[in-house]
Design a protein around this nucleic acid. Sequence first.
DNA 1: GATAAGGGTTCCAGTAACTGGAAGGTCAAG
DNA 2: CTTGACCTTCCAGTTACTGGAACCCTTATC
Lengths: 131, 131
Amino acid sequence: MIIGEAAKLSGMSAKTIRYYEDIGLVTPTRDPQSGYRDYSDNDVHVLKFLHRARDLGFSVKQCRELLSLYEDRDRASSDVKAIAKSHLEDIGRKIEELQEMENTLKHLVSCCQGDDRPDCPILSGLAGKDS
Amino acid sequence: MIIGEAAKLSGMSAKTIRYYEDIGLVTPTRDPQSGYRDYSDNDVHVLKFLHRARDLGFSVKQCRELLSLYEDRDRASSDVKAIAKSHLEDIGRKIEELQEMENTLKHLVSCCQGDDRPDCPILSGLAGKDS
DNA sequence: GATAAGGGTTCCAGTAACTGGAAGGTCAAG
DNA sequence: CTTGACCTTCCAGTTACTGGAACCCTTATC
């Protein structure tokens, strides 16, 4: 099938799919007549796999690892689990960071009148004067 | 003072400080003798301001807005509050997204034995087979 | 056969916010 | 006078795409 169809089926843009080919993730065959890329059902399957993994926040590098494990029928599930757990830790850290930001900022915002006067605890807070 | 000192005092790297000059955030004077950048106390104050704002996850673009509000003695605090609230919403959205990822991934990981056998619910999950 | 629409192709540039590194100038100390 | 620790500029790389230009292929219609 041509790239537009693969895009629809996989849920990714054609741009992204071409990009994944550039970086060596999914390499379709070519129609020698037209020069168009020709995607097999399996290619689309792999594209979907990548799409889900990216949605779960795996980096492209991690996706590459997961993909090679996926295509290796003899892989140990512990290898996959290790990647996933490391990624889970990353996610956890990010959540914590964001929650800290959220708390600090909520505090500053709650202290600010938000009217047309110039006094602003948010700016004072950022400037280092304890609000 | 020279850039290294400003870096120490503000908590940012000299690289970052030069970058902030490139994009027009903080422009120090120059020592005409040496060509070295010369930072005033106020420059450092602004650098600290930026450092905190970035730490709170404000984009550089938002920092620019906050900074111009900070330097405008007649600004309305509501303008600042609007930026902060919009940023708070962004943060909230990101947290939710990450928590969804975390849930999905935790589920997959908990289903995976993590041994030396090849069966792996994580990969199956990514491949679209419901685990 | 000409043409127009709606695909496809390549390639280059831009995004965000820095960071690393090379090549070279300046300054204070010994 | 040299050494070391600063500083300077400039270019490239990072992540994962996205936008756009210029041009080719296919199909349908007139």
